Computed example of a mutant assay.
Amino acid sequence: MTARLGLGALAVVLAGCASVDGAATAGEIDVRTLAVGGYTTVPADLEATHKPTDGPILEGLRMAGAVVLPHEVDAALTHNWGTDVLDTPRRAADASAISTVNIPVLERHRMIVGFDVAEGSRAFDQATPAIDTDARVTRIVLLRFPGAGTAAAAARDLAATDFGVSPDNQRVAIPGYPAAHAHWRPGIKTIGATFANGELVVSLFLQHPTPDIDALARRVAAVLDAQKPLLDTFVPTAPDRIAELPRDPDGLLRRTLIPGPANQQIAISSREFAAWTGRASLHYRPTEPAELAAAWDRGGVDSVANSYTTTLFRFRDDSDAAAFGATWQDTLSTAAHPVAGPDRVPGARCAERRAGSAPAVVRCYVSYRRYGAFVSGPAAAGVRQQAAAQYALLANAQ
């Protein structure tokens, strides 16, 4: 499966014996007998390890469900160019939809958090600037501010500061959105725009294959047409309650394999350790092959949790969770081949992928009831232990 987000560093296998609480129920194996290596199979008490710095990131993860995915508006945008929570003004300003000149603006208007997603019509190439290609690009950044009036002022000031960078910039009217602030430089095939909606600001950066201002303006309007209904239904957390947001709102993250003891304190991080609930789970929907995307859709995935090299999905029911794994194995790329899975783990499926000179990656899929999970790593033996431990953890979390 091709996840839409990077999965972070490889899980660390710790020494010692794992603790497994649950004995088998009728018709199930005794997970205490599985070869789980040093991985813990005890569900973590995540709320007991809440950190003050988690709050803004947790609000950013909620906003992940309020952002339109660029390919939902433009089917040509088939490649993910990056997705992340922006938890500081500097990180937000580094997003190309904002510009670093706007750090003082974000600080002055007390930006709380942002969420960023970018997609292009071709694969991202760090060595070649997008502007030097004919790629279609859409980058959407949602920014949260403490109040609607503050958000409106921030949208205006962000646009004004960016506009002032070049004397060649010209203002652009966006069809249907007189309150939007947009500008471009004639002859350049990009456009920037901001639009305030309640306590949120949408900041957009779009590139077109040619410097066609009418096409660029229409594309901005199309994004806002899709984005505004999501913003209208999103309920921002009151600023004085953000620190109280739950780390694991759907109970998925406690079921997700992590290295080390169950009581370790792990900071929430959108890329390494976080829960993506409701519509936010779409950021993990596979886009290819088409059969796997269809299996995801049929399975009704409604929540995802990511823990380093483990990704856990909650499906509509048990059969959907198992069917997704079967589809994954049936649609492996030519660079991958099946390998032996962990002993006595029902329905486990594993594959090794080798691509050119890159190190091999082994990935296993296991399902338990309505949950399905991928684990991965460089060595088959260690990944089989992860798969067995993930299965045992799911059983113990019931």
Rank of each mutant, 00 (worst) to 15 (best):
G37A: 08
L393Q: 04
M63E: 00
T210L: 13
M111E: 08
G114S: 04
Q329E: 13
L86A: 04
L200P: 06
A395K: 13
A11Q: 10
N169V: 07
H50F: 09
P52I: 10
L7G: 04
T237R: 02
L142H: 02
G377N: 09
P239R: 08
T2A: 10
T53H: 02
L292A: 04
H283L: 15
S319T: 11
A222W: 06
W184A: 14
P43K: 06
R108Y: 11
T334R: 14
M111H: 09
A95Y: 03
H208S: 14
F115C: 05
I268T: 14
T309D: 12
G16F: 01
G38E: 00
S376Q: 12
A221C: 04
S333M: 06
A380D: 04
G372T: 03
K51R: 14
D318M: 08
G149Q: 10
A93K: 03
G82I: 05
A395P: 02
Q227N: 07
H181R: 14
V141E: 07
S270T: 08
T100H: 11
L253K: 08
I191Y: 02
R279G: 09
T33F: 11
R108P: 06
L332M: 11
T161C: 11
H181Y: 06
A274C: 08
L143W: 00
G325W: 01
G164E: 12
A15R: 00
T150G: 06
W184E: 12
F234D: 03
Q207G: 13
R218N: 12
L292F: 05
A280T: 10
A196K: 05
H71Y: 14
L200K: 07
Y365D: 09
S319P: 00
Y39M: 00
Q398W: 15
Q265T: 14
A280W: 06
A159N: 03
F124P: 03
A238P: 05
H79K: 15
P146Y: 07
F205A: 11
L5G: 05
T78M: 03
G347R: 08
I98K: 05
R354W: 02
R90S: 14
P56R: 00
V345N: 00
F324M: 12
A387S: 10
R353L: 10
D45P: 03
N197R: 11
A274F: 10
A127D: 15
S121F: 02
D132V: 02
P186M: 01
H337L: 14
L5W: 10
P52W: 06
R384N: 12
I98S: 07
A392P: 05
V366K: 11
I174C: 06
T327K: 11
V13K: 07
G372M: 03
F163T: 06
A196L: 04
R285S: 12
